[in-house]
Simulated scan of single mutants.
Amino acid sequence: MITLPRIMLAALVVIGSYVFVVAPRVDAYTNPSAQWSPQVVEPRPTFTLEPPVPGRRPQGFPDAGTAFFGIFTEKGPGDLTDYNGFVQAAGKGPQVMMFASGWGAQKHFDRQPFDRIVNRGMLPMLGWEPWDYRAESKTDKDRGTQPQYRLSRIAGGAFDAYITEWAKGIKDLGYPVAIRFAHEMNGYWYPWCESANGNQRGDYVAAWRHVHDLFAKLGTKNVIWVWSPNVVYENATPLSQLYPGDDYVDWVGLSGYYGTAGMETYQTFDQIYRPTLAELKRISQRPIVVTETAATDAQGRKAEWITDFLRSLPKHPEIIGFLWYESIKETDWRIAATPAASSAFAQGVAQPYYTARWSPDMVPRTTLPSTASASATPSASASRSN
């Protein structure tokens, strides 16, 4: 998440052949009342999951040869204003919706936001964040300092009761949920980054595996585990040092924006993503999801970037979907912000490649096209728990 102090810090390091591109601060959890209002009571989903038929291969999500698109908003499922504007601008609805939940503020599991997303035909993706955003430092270099949430404490069992409550709650939902746990760990701006908060090398993998194993021990099989770094930049923690392994990950996520603060010079899809995609190819065989992306219009090239982005994804079959950050934060990231951006996005997702649909009985794709023998395989989490 980029801020002016971070730009000043980045200026002190030598930039390589690509530009240091990080995600903007999208603290969707800074206003938890906007995330979910106690007055909103969402009915439980009414679908019925059919038992598997012997010999019949379940349909994959997304199906082979397609990609999904999703949405992430500042206010989450508690306020669907930006979601509604996004659907209108795109000309059709997304298949995934992500919302954030911080451990320090959201003390107990609540199924309401999950149900609200599923009732609108989307896979819920939980951005699960082990910190207290309310105690966040306003000094950028200290933002990742919260000793209570040190990775060694997570791995050591200090939060086991909390994790267990959420694991049981998600299990009881009865439909799939993607969990993007402790994202952008290769940076320095969160307490779970190995370069921050007194964490040591190896602590991130230990914490990830501990959380994952608690879910597996409780038989919570309906989770798609999303490991989601930031696009690589000079002096970032190496991804190979942070990857828990394919046995602990179902999808690899990725944050990458065009036009974060102070970096409005136009950058193509390849300039932003290619170095990271090359690095990921060396450490993981899991499909990739761009879990956060958006574009600025500071130079009047937002529509151009959207067109380039949506034309580039089909050239990368390892990328099975993306989520757009549809909110006003540092700038107006919304596709609904201008007719040109709306038109570019609508035309882009009208391509046959973006015809994925989601339903609760679909099985997430967890293998790359080059290694997949079918369009769908059981999720890694499910197979490990059997």
Score class of each variant (00 low, 15 high):
290 V>T: 09
304 E>D: 10
61 F>D: 05
17 S>N: 07
266 Y>A: 15
80 L>T: 06
102 G>N: 15
66 T>S: 09
287 P>I: 12
172 D>R: 09
133 Y>P: 13
10 A>T: 12
308 D>G: 12
92 K>F: 05
8 M>E: 15
221 K>S: 13
35 Q>N: 14
213 D>Q: 15
379 S>I: 02
289 V>L: 13
297 D>S: 05
141 K>Q: 12
154 I>K: 00
344 A>K: 03
188 Y>K: 04
196 A>H: 09
121 G>C: 09
72 F>R: 00
370 S>T: 14
306 I>C: 12
128 W>A: 09
176 P>R: 09
184 E>Y: 01
87 V>K: 05
71 I>L: 09
299 Q>Y: 08
197 N>C: 12
191 P>C: 00
125 M>Y: 02
377 T>H: 14
212 H>P: 03
2 I>G: 01
4 L>G: 05
315 K>G: 06
35 Q>W: 15
229 P>I: 03
17 S>P: 07
215 F>T: 04
5 P>M: 08
274 R>Q: 15
325 Y>V: 15
370 S>K: 14
50 E>L: 05
136 E>H: 04
349 V>I: 14
340 A>P: 01
320 I>L: 11
238 P>L: 11
153 R>D: 06
297 D>E: 12
282 R>C: 00
152 S>M: 00
228 S>P: 01
277 L>T: 10
146 Q>A: 00
233 Y>P: 02
109 F>I: 15
342 S>C: 00
47 F>A: 10
377 T>F: 03
148 Q>L: 13
116 R>F: 05
365 R>K: 06
250 D>F: 13
300 G>P: 05
267 Q>C: 10
152 S>N: 04
135 A>S: 11
381 S>D: 08
341 A>N: 11
156 G>I: 06
111 R>T: 01
3 T>W: 02
106 Q>T: 12
133 Y>N: 08
165 E>W: 08
102 G>H: 05
234 E>M: 08
243 Y>N: 09
174 G>Q: 05
27 D>P: 07
288 I>W: 10
58 P>N: 14
141 K>T: 12
367 T>M: 13
299 Q>W: 07
324 W>G: 05
5 P>Q: 08
370 S>I: 08
8 M>A: 15
79 D>R: 10
1 M>T: 15
350 A>N: 11
243 Y>T: 07
328 I>L: 11
168 K>P: 02
284 S>H: 06
47 F>P: 11
166 W>L: 08
303 A>R: 00
73 T>I: 08
70 G>F: 00
342 S>E: 02
205 V>T: 14
271 Q>Y: 14
200 Q>M: 03
345 F>A: 02
137 S>M: 06
100 A>R: 08
